[in-house]
């Protein structure tokens, strides 16, 4: 997968209340959630961003609640992928399970300015800043997570493996 887009920078410990505040959790409609994506971290984010843009976080991105509404809001807002120094574990699971591409890079966040464009090549495991041509390595995705992505998320993965088990 290749993702090319402008990065929007956020700091460390961006919690799921900032990504999608609880006051909007009375619905699970992706488009309604998307309208409030990142609202408590940057109230203008949805207005400013364009489809294909990339969220760039620091350490522990997505900490706090288990709400899958967080990756759902990000994906439905049109964000192509999230890059962070590290991810909180439930957000990490959720992203792979529901199909939001996420990548870990310890160095990118400190080497790039907001608004710069990058190209993420998941097969090569690289992120390249367009203007400076600087290249960064993505932490390798564990094989099982790769399987989840290739199958189109957890439920499709289960359908596939259950099908296999039943024909055995």
């Amino acid at each position: 997968m290749i993702f090319k887009g402008k990065v929007w920078k956020f700091g460390d410990n961006i919690d799921t209340d900032a990504i999608i505040p609880a006051r909007y959790l009375t619905t699970s409609d992706p488009l309604e959630l998307a309208a409030h994506c990142m609202e408590d971290a940057d109230p203008d984010f949805v207005k400013k961003m364009q489809a294909g843009d990339i969220i760039l976080g620091g350490e522990n991105f997505g900490c706090g609640s288990s709400r899958e509404h967080a990756p759902i809001a990000i994906k439905a807002a049109g964000v192509s992928c999230v890059i962070a120094k590290s991810f909180a574990r439930i957000f990490y699971r959720n992203a792979f399970n529901m199909g939001l591409p996420i990548f870990e890079s310890a160095e990118l966040a400190d080497a790039i300015k907001e608004g710069e464009e990058v190209t993420v090549d998941s097969a090569k495991g690289t992120i390249i800043i367009t203007d400076s041509n600087k290249s960064f390595t993505i932490n390798p995705i564990p094989p099982f997570m790769e399987e989840l992505i290739n199958d189109g998320g957890l439920m499709k993965h289960i359908a596939k493996t259950r099908g296999k088990n039943e024909t055995k």
Binding site: S66, R67, E68, I90, R93, N94, N97, M98, F144, G153, L154, M155, I158, R162
Partner: peptide, 18 residues
């Protein structure tokens, strides 16, 4: 442990989770 909604769906369906 806390998980997301898709994980809950998988567990309700199969009784198992990764």
């Amino acid at each position: 442990t806390g998980v997301g909604s898709t994980d809950l769906a998988a567990a309700m369906l199969t009784g198992e989770l990764w």
